[in-house]
Amino acid sequence: MEEEEEEAMLNKEEEEDDDEEDYNIVKFQNSPLRNRAIMVDEVAWRLKNGDLMMRIEAAKEVRKMVRKSSNSNSKSAVRCRFAASGAIEPLVSMLNNWFPLSAREAALLALLNLAARNLRNKTRIVSLGAVPPLVELLKCQTGNLRELAGAAILALSSAASNKPTIAASGAASLLVEVLCSGSVQGKVDAVTALYNLSISEEGPKLIVDVKAVPPLIHLLKECKKYFKFAEKTTFLLEIFSSSEEGRMAITNVDGGILTLVETVEDGSSISMEHAVGVLLSLCRSCRDKYRELILNEGAIPGLLRLTAEGTSVAQERARTLLDLLRYSPPESRLTSSELERIVYDFTVHVDGTDKAVETAKRLLQGIVRKSMELSFSRVKIRASSCTPSKIQST
């Protein structure tokens, strides 16, 4: 997970009153390293040996010590020292449902701060059994706790070794619930967590309910198409486009295809690649059904641009999709003159009148070449289906 996402995750926590800073925190910031270690060890001892109220206050102290550290190096040192002092295990224990919600929230906030930018702590938190109680907290009707649990799943899912455990826990379906009904930040956290779990190279492929599609498209509509968040959203939508149920969900959302077309036009290179992948998946599955829907949203200019400026994968997908959009039944076929006019108008807008003819010619030649390659490939496939024995027997 990117550093800015973890910062956003921590910044969204409910801020405490900082007007009366605890004296020990001030002392911690200004003391030598040896005294810092002593203070961390004292807090860890209270987490392990104190009564309920003492443990809750100690958990709050963990969060304060990390957040009040003066710089990133200091924060990292505090996180490592807390882990070395054995503070993680009692904090994980406090997540369980036999503790009151106040204790669970304090422990959750402490663990979020210990996990941020620390792969070893993330792995340790999961190995000590944090995932099952976090899944239970995702079911909580208290919005703040549910979304803090989602933020924790997000943080922990960025560690590759944690992904199989989280994916097997049933967290994905609960993240979809957050995606459907949570706050904007809760939805963003849910999308990123689902993305992290979907790119796992270990364990079975993550199955996500298609009811995630409408909020995904809505979020893509609202965000800047070149943001990293759009890359994660379009990645998930491309996964959904591989099934008929997912394709129907995408096209049933008002403005769903238009949002993908706009991403092809305005997205980053990665989100463009995924967005055109979705459109291509739709058209390949049933060209007669989806061709007009895609053309009606004005996809041609963005696809033409992508054939020249996209990644190698995006260029190939755009060319293939253009070919599918052109070759259609006679009554709805895009004529050569129509295509030439569209290409010329597009290149005038991009390169100006002086270079438009040259650029349009190059783009049209690329489309024709690709079409010929596909046609030749089909001929080869048909020819290979005729074995020598069949030829001799005819």
Rank of each mutant, 00 (worst) to 15 (best):
M54W: 09
K390A: 00
V40M: 05
S102K: 15
A360N: 07
F376D: 14
L219F: 00
D22G: 11
M372A: 13
T142D: 12
S127L: 09
R124M: 02
E292Y: 05
G129A: 03
A383W: 03
L179T: 03
Y327S: 14
R34Y: 09
A115N: 01
S377V: 11
L154S: 11
K64S: 13
N35P: 07
E105Y: 11
I391T: 10
G50H: 10
I257M: 10
N96A: 10
M1Q: 04
Y23K: 15
A8Y: 10
L10K: 08
I56K: 04
E201Y: 11
V184P: 10
L108T: 01
K221P: 02
D288T: 04
T263W: 02
R291H: 03
A59S: 11
V178K: 01
L334D: 05
R55K: 13
N196E: 06
E20A: 11
F229H: 11
L325C: 00
S70N: 14
K232W: 06
A8R: 15
L179G: 04
G129R: 00
D351Y: 15
S70A: 15
L334G: 10
V178E: 04
A77G: 02
R63T: 07
K221I: 00
N73W: 02
I25C: 14
E201K: 15
S241K: 02
A275N: 03
K64A: 14
A299C: 12
T233Y: 07
L114D: 00
R79T: 01
A299L: 02
L109F: 04
R369Q: 14
M94C: 02
A275Y: 00
L363Q: 14
I270A: 08
T123E: 14
V92Q: 04
L295H: 03
M1I: 14
V210Y: 07
L303I: 03
E16F: 13
G186K: 07
R362Q: 06
A172T: 10
G352R: 02
F240R: 03
S336Q: 01
F227H: 05
P301Q: 03
C283Y: 01
K163Y: 03
L206G: 04
L237A: 07
K224M: 13
A212S: 11
K163W: 09
E89Y: 06
T359S: 13
K205L: 13
E136Q: 06
N96C: 10
S384P: 02
Y195F: 07
E316Y: 14
A44S: 08
L282S: 08
K122Q: 07
L33N: 01
D22M: 12
K139A: 13
D17K: 07
L363D: 12
D266P: 00
E231N: 08
S161Y: 04
I270V: 10
S243I: 08
K289H: 12
K27R: 14
V191F: 03
E57Y: 10
L293I: 10
L175M: 06
V313T: 13
L134H: 02
K60A: 08
V264F: 00
I88G: 06
L33A: 15
L293C: 09
K211R: 15
K187I: 07
K68C: 15
S243L: 13
S183N: 09
A275D: 00
A110Y: 05
N296H: 01
A172N: 13
G298K: 04
S157R: 06
E340M: 13
K48W: 13
A383F: 05
H274P: 00
L138W: 04
H218L: 11
A159E: 12
G129F: 04
S158G: 15
L114W: 01
Q392G: 10
C283Q: 04
T234P: 03
L109W: 08
